[in-house]
Design a protein around this nucleic acid. Structure first.
Lengths: 202, 202
DNA sequence: CTAGTAACAAAAAACATATTTTGTCATTTG
DNA sequence: CAAATGACAAAATATGTTTTTTGTTACTAG
């Protein structure tokens, strides 16, 4: 597969070669030297664009997280009722993760790893998601959709009941379970969540 | 099948030495030879009682899981209303896990490992828990406490919303969060679950 | 000044090999 | 016969060494 040759900025090219190398050989067998060789440059030059191998790998992860995050912002800025937004946010993230796991497992593994090891890229992504959800919850509380009084508790509840569907390591586990089954289960969890938030019992 | 207990049966002694060795040195640095040496016997003899090192380690895990499981059976056989039982079962398991993590982390690590690697001891324990919960749910459906119609969906919902509090790897994560905070969060999740099961919307 | 290279030291990984460990079994002991 | 041992092969792991990789820097070309 040919990438856009020289029109692309160098850092983006390096990123692409890095991702492709990880896809083909796995993170274990990926070296900066090899990436540089495939990008036809000295490995020293890679360090002009990325301060370390870890930073480069994190950047690859960041790369596919970015569109998810901007998608969330779009949902959040939409005109829908609060809970619809909440549900769409959580579903969108869940689907994006599962999709990546199935179509690009090597890169999803990067994300799982970053999550487990608490790397900045994973923490920041989680914070962004949290911040979007918080904003929707505040929205819903202001509009009276969620009579809950304690935003922190509401936030914790949302992520606690969704943990199994949003935690990267947890998602990786179900090889056997079909996507339709899992989707149905998440839907029912979200329905229960809606009732709870809507009734204000916290 | 019950053996006449002499002062301490050899297999139980081996189990104790194995657990203690793992506690002191971690699983990595634990060998059958070393365990046998501490138990003052040839390592070959250990294999008279346990077919392999893995089986021995699994038995150590089983050892502390056993009392939890019999505790569950007691709750299950009690006279309380269905949801009280459900809540007590889930809380008891959660507390037992957290407690082990805090007081005996090396042995809890064995359990985490067994869970991740899908070893029999972890799978069987999970099945036992599931079976107890299912029986309580059936109970509750029969008594009219849970108007839900689909037991499998109810079961899935229970474990999905509880995942964050019952999955061994998930429990390991929160070093920062205090026990009281987590307990409060699980309580609120259980309250939401009660309302959902009680209202029959599935 | 920007994009790049080449040479380098320190750290990590790969390698080959010696040692330990796992698991089996024929034999011993009480 | 039940409980245990010691010797053994195959597998796994530790060890010491060589090679590769990481990350830095002084330097070159446009």
């Amino acid at each position: 597969m040919a990438k856009a040759p020289s029109s692309e900025p160098t850092d983006a090219r390096i990123l692409e070669f890095a991702a492709e190398h990880i896809r083909r050989h796995g993170l274990e067998r990926t070296t900066v030297v090899a990436i540089a060789r495939e990008a036809a440059m000295s490995h020293g030059n890679v360090y002009r664009y990325f301060p370390s191998k870890e930073a480069l790998v994190d950047a690859v992860t960041q790369q596919w997280l970015k569109p998810i995050e901007s998608g969330l912002r779009d949902i959040c800025d939409g005109p829908d009722p609060a809970f619809d937004k909440l549900e769409r946010i959580l579903s969108a993230v869940h689907r994006a993760y599962r999709n990546k796991l199935e179509t690009d497992p090597a890169i999803f593994d990067l994300f799982i790893d970053a999550s487990i090891r608490g790397r900045g890229v994973a923490r920041k992504h989680r914070l962004k998601l949290q911040s979007e959800v918080r904003s929707v919850l505040e929205d819903g509380m202001a509009s009276g959709a969620f009579p809950a009084h304690d935003i922190r508790r509401a936030l914790a509840l949302v992520f606690d009941v969704s943990h199994r569907f949003l935690s990267p390591p947890a998602i990786r586990v179900d090889g056997e379970v079909t996507r339709a089954q899992i989707d149905g289960r998440f839907e029912r969890v979200l329905r229960a969540l809606r009732r709870t938030l809507g009734s204000g019992v916290l």
